[in-house]
Design a protein around this nucleic acid. Structure first.
Lengths: 336, 336
DNA sequence: CTGAAAGCGCTTACAG
DNA sequence: CTGAAAGCGCTTACAG
């Protein structure tokens, strides 16, 4: 260990440049030289120093992915796809968890490990457009997920409003008249929740149903336990819902468990639909209807957008916004 | 953007060394100088170049975590804990997915991004002790998970054999007489599966039950679909099992869904226990009994072991093996 | 097809 | 308390 280009060059009796050429697979090296160099490399156990390489070249081959938490299946699945998509282009991914906390998201905006990261993929929860505008760090960045489209940054996500509207209408078409929503979030944050709520209201409208504020429950973290608790309080209402649109699958799975515990038949008495299509949703009993964003497309598109920014040396070009597709998957939880 | 120490030094009218001192928070800088430098830093928007810093210092502050796939909840939860544990020490984590494929695990052994990674946390599936012995890369490495303890590498995991034995006995104590196992894997790979199988056999012994090879089913990837399929074939046996020990929770969740679909009451007719304690297991209906490894302890211990190796400049010290704890959590799926 | 030299941006002894 | 210089290990023009 510890050998460098110079050692290899000395042993092979060539210049450093020639060794570099061999290591990087350049064409114009004679076969004999190449072999001699290769032998020296093997003998010394030489490994190129990625740090030195990236200091010189200005590229590290590392992307950062900042998400709220890997413990949430949606982000874990997305991370898995991003890591694979990046690997396909020779890039490695470094993970940053923000817990969706504003201060930690601002740190990401400020830039993590400058010059050690060629670009940033970011799924913010708490940040607003104003924060994005205030950003001074110039590392190329692409936003992931379902946000408002008016920011100054490249972005790939799905049309949340349309998808949520469709989910709500789906329940109405199955005969639900009192459709609850679980997952609204406080003002100033939660663009995702805000959009899904907007879609929910439009869906109600489409179906000629009135909004009942008693049926709209918050869930700051989109966790299972919040879905459980929200469902429990909905069931205590004098006039409980006959359908529930949960803003993500974890909330729906929590709600489902609550309904089981209380002996409420699903979908007969209460129908359920979620959002995200976590893998576990199709194994629940009853299996969970949901909106399935095209996560693979989101991941590959985001990586490609980012790499094109990196290669372009980021001109002050207009932000690009890509809308990925989604599918409504009707399963047992809304089959009636 | 693009300013460096030299620019800052010029603007502040001091030497590069002094700027470096201020940036790194050294004590022996006069307040006046410090402030002048800080002003120049702010004015230029100077950000230290992490790459140059690590080339010079020999430390990058980056750890690699290599796991089969983030899509599996156990690894996602572990990754989440590792990222947080590393962050607590000022380290960032880069993710490598191996899919549990031997060739890709060998790449990890060979070393990823040399010198850009200070140390490696590795959860191998296909590698054997022989592969570990053959390793020549000298980047500090710690193995994660539940493997044989005889390798040449630092390791932290739980006592799989004991835990699996306990799980099996748990079913026997609940009155199960024909206990199946889902999750055995082919020879040469799958130390985890092998150990859990060994524990299963001991558990049967403890309970005075005979091993019935017809009740032992393979599952190469530990995925939900495999659990479903294995359960389906177990139900077709002339003499089906009355209890099933699944080698992880995903298998158990797949089996559970199969039992629901076939109308088999759980735990009355078939009791079930899993392994890992994925968060979703406590929300299943019935909730899933399982072995809960102390994942937080595994993550923090592994990070600490690795950092101590990195700081020590890795002497050829004997490998350290840490056994983390676990709990058997009895839930509804085995309550009878 | 190959070589000698400069330099990426920092930190680290070495002086003073 | 501060400065001038060397060097971490590469790659990149520039020559030949």
């Amino acid at each position: 260990m510890g050998s460098n280009l110079k050692d290899v060059a000395a042993l092979a009796g060539v210049s450093v440049k020639t060794v570099s050429n061999v290591v990087n697979g350049y064409v114009h090296v004679s076969a004999a030289t190449r072999e001699r160099v290769q032998r020296a490399i093997d003998e010394l156990g030489y490994r190129p120093n990625a740090t030195a390489r990236s200091l010189r070249s200005g590229r590290s081959g590392v992307l950062a992915l900042a998400v709220p938490e890997l413990g949430v299946p949606y982000f874990a699945e997305l991370a898995s796809l991003v890591v694979d998509a990046a690997a396909a282009h020779g890039y490695t991914v470094l993970i940053d968890q923000t817990a969706g906390a504003k201060d930690r998201e601002l740190v990401v905006l400020g830039g993590i490990r400058h010059h050690l990261v060629d670009g940033v993929l970011f799924s913010p929860l708490a940040l607003g457009v104003a924060d994005l505008r205030r950003r001074t760090d110039s590392t190329p960045m692409v936003l992931l997920g379902e946000r408002g489209l008016r920011g100054p940054t490249d972005h790939v996500g799905i049309d949340n409003i349309r998808a949520a509207r469709e989910a709500t209408r789906h329940l109405a078409e199955r005969g639900c008249r009192r459709i609850a929503a679980i997952g609204v979030q406080s003002v100033g944050t939660g663009a995702t929740a805000r959009q899904r709520y907007a879609g929910y209201r439009k869906g109600l409208d489409d179906a000629g149903l009135d909004l009942d504020p008693a049926l709209v429950l918050p869930a700051p973290r989109f966790h299972r336990a919040e879905g459980y608790a929200a469902m429990a309080s909905l069931l205590e209402l004098p006039d409980p819902p006959d359908g529930v649109f949960c803003f993500n699958d974890l909330l729906a799975l929590g709600a489902l468990r609550c309904l089981h515990t209380r002996g409420v038949p699903v979908p007969e008495q209460v129908a359920l639909i979620g959002f995200d299509d976590a893998e576990e949703s199709s194994y629940a009993t009853p299996s969970l209807s949901t909106i399935a964003p095209d996560k693979a497309a989101i991941a590959t598109t985001a990586v490609e957008l980012l790499l094109s920014r990196i290669r372009a040396g980021e001109p002050p070009e207009a932000p690009r916004r890509v809308t990925a597709g989604y599918t409504l998957i009707a399963r047992e939880s809304s089959a009636r």
